[in-house]
């Protein structure tokens, strides 16, 4: 089975977010970059499927050269090879077009992604790619088993779960608890250095959206403390002051 896993290079979940250049650029100072947490679930499941069924796992990232440490980490975790599309990931539709261009020539059985990126939070790329390829997409997938040509999945819905089936090829947006994150071992880290990482130039696409400027939410006011001996005071304040009851 030939699996493609699309990964993002995103600020660590504990990062403080700020912007520079008059609020048009993300401030990378002091920020640690990681594989998107949902993408890492996708990668972990891909490796498990490969271990069980054979085949290959390729990771793909649309990003500039500074994302390579994150791609190498995915190789250390167990992907066989990697593709970096050499471009700033300007928006979901641009990213999807790049993935589609690769997928059209490579004919993957399974394309796994995260349910959403934790920087743009679009939740779009999987559906965009699948629609362009004319194949099914399922998200958010919390369980994925492959039986022959059939993918059996559990998908989270509001207030519950839905079990779905579809034949391969297929695109899935993954989330926990689809697999356990894998910690790269020494051998993985060593071998990652020499695994193939192909750099591909982007294909041109029509631009449909432009990100104009960023802003931070307004600062939170001070927290009003209520004495533990009179918690009923809380409801008074919620009713008359905050007006949320």
């Amino acid at each position: 089975m030939k699996i493609l896993v699309c990964i993002t290079n995103v600020p660590d979940t504990t990062s403080k977010i700020s912007f520079t250049d008059n609020n048009t650029k993300f401030n990378t100072t002091g920020v640690q970059f990681i594989i998107g947490p949902y993408d890492e679930y996708a990668l972990s499941r891909a490796i498990e499927l490969k271990e069980a069924n054979g085949g290959s796992v390729t990771v793909l990232n649309v990003g500039e050269a500074d994302t390579e440490p994150t791609i190498r980490k995915a190789l250390a975790i167990g992907a066989d090879d990697a593709i970096r599309i050499n471009a700033f990931p300007k928006d979901a539709q641009f990213v999807a077009a790049q993935i589609v261009a690769v997928a059209k020539t490579e004919n993957y059985d399974l394309i796994l992604m995260g349910r959403e990126s934790i920087d743009f939070n679009g939740g779009l790329v999987h559906g965009l790619v699948a629609e362009a390829l004319g194949i099914p997409s399922v998200s958010p997938v919390m369980k994925l088993d492959i039986e022959g040509n059939l993918a059996k999945m559990a998908r989270e819905i509001e207030g519950g779960k839905e079990y779905v089936e579809a034949t391969l090829p297929l695109v899935a947006g993954c989330q926990e608890p689809i697999a356990e994150w894998k910690i790269p071992n020494m051998r993985g880290i060593m071998s990652a250095r020499t695994k193939p990482l192909k750099v591909v130039e982007p294909t041109a696409t029509e631009s449909l959206i432009n990100m104009l400027a960023y802003e931070l939410p307004p600062a939170k006011g001070a927290c009003k403390m209520i004495d533990a001996s009179t918690p009923e005071k809380l409801f008074e304040l919620l009713k008359n002051e905050a007006k949320v009851l």
Partner: peptide
């Protein structure tokens, strides 16, 4: 925005060649 719509909207955008923004 909902879990169902999240999965529909990207496919809809491709069909309409539309720019899409979620949330």
């Amino acid at each position: 925005k909902s879990s169902a719509v999240d999965a529909i909207v990207s496919r809809l955008a491709v069909k309409l060649n539309a720019g899409v923004v979620t949330g």
